[in-house]
Simulated assay, not measured.
Amino acid sequence: MSDTPANPNNAAGPEGQQTAPALTVLAQYLKDLSFENPHAPAVYQSNSTPKIEVNVDVQGRALNPNQYEIELSVAARANREDGEAMFVVEATYAGVFEITNVPREQLEMVMLVECPRLLFPFMRQIVADATRNGNFPPLMLEPIDFMGIYIANQQRRAAEQGNGNGEQATPVN
């Protein structure tokens, strides 16, 4: 008798058993990038510490059966103490993912948690490079808890439905 399981990857066997969930990255690409330095070169003569605001958004859409495009968007703005913009960087990094054997009720979670988690390191590098190329210290985005955001949005959506106001919640902000 062998110590190796007959079906170690939970793949379909001869009886046509259900295969394991799979997530495959088919493509990754920079979809949009904008860097604005509206007050150069005067901004470099200021010694003020900027206030940085970062907004993140995740959007997904079906392309084909089991194939989805997921877009991870970041908008970061650095303002001086007087409110004047030092820089603005906006980027959208996307990927095409093949998602198979995932129950329908878990598909949204995979699209809004696992896919952006895979895209995030690339987005982080793009934002850091753009700010460094604008002659600012690289803006290193903090890690994002996509699962925590997803759960919070699910709870908010459930509370809104419980209150009966019928407003639609955005998947991830």
Rank of each mutant, 00 (worst) to 15 (best):
Q45M: 14
R80G: 11
L139C: 02
T4W: 09
V54Y: 03
E81W: 10
Q45R: 12
A91L: 03
V58S: 01
M140K: 11
S34Q: 10
T49L: 08
E71W: 09
T92R: 01
M140E: 15
E36D: 08
E98I: 00
R80N: 11
E53F: 10
V113T: 09
L33P: 00
Q67L: 02
L112R: 02
F35S: 09
A130P: 02
L118M: 11
A78M: 04
Y29N: 04
E98M: 07
Q45H: 13
E36L: 06
P116M: 01
N79P: 07
N10G: 15
N10P: 07
P121A: 04
R61N: 12
A130L: 04
G13D: 00
N135T: 12
P138W: 08
A78C: 04
Q125T: 14
A40Y: 01
R80H: 14
T92I: 08
T92S: 05
A85R: 09
V127H: 02
E69D: 05
A76D: 00
A62V: 12
F122M: 10
N9D: 13
L141M: 04
N133H: 11
T49V: 12
L26W: 07
V56A: 12
L63M: 07
M111E: 13
A12Y: 00
N133C: 06
D145K: 06
P8N: 04
A27K: 15
T131I: 03
E114W: 07
N37W: 05
F87G: 00
P121I: 04
R77A: 09
L119M: 05
A27R: 15
E108V: 08
L139V: 05
V88I: 15
Q125I: 11
G95W: 00
R124Y: 06
V56S: 13
K31V: 05
D145W: 06
L107H: 04
P103C: 07
V58L: 03
A6N: 11
E69S: 03
D32F: 03
I70K: 02
N47R: 12
N135R: 12
M123D: 01
D3R: 13
T19D: 15
R117P: 08
M86I: 08
A27E: 12
V74A: 07
K31N: 07
E53P: 08
E15C: 00
P14L: 10
C115F: 01
R124W: 03
M123K: 01
G83S: 03
A91R: 00
A91K: 00
Q125N: 15
A75V: 14
S73T: 08
P137Y: 14
I70D: 01
P50F: 08
G134Q: 01
T4D: 09
R77E: 11
A42V: 10
H39V: 14
P116Y: 02
V58K: 01
F35V: 14
K51D: 15
Q28Y: 10
D145P: 02
P65C: 08
P137D: 15
R61G: 12
D129W: 03
F87T: 02
M147S: 13
A40G: 10
P65L: 09
R104M: 11
P143W: 06
H39Q: 15
E142S: 13
A40R: 02
P65N: 14
F87Q: 01
D57I: 09
S73N: 07
N47L: 14
A11L: 10
V96P: 00
A27V: 07
T49H: 10
Q17D: 13
F122N: 08
M147P: 08
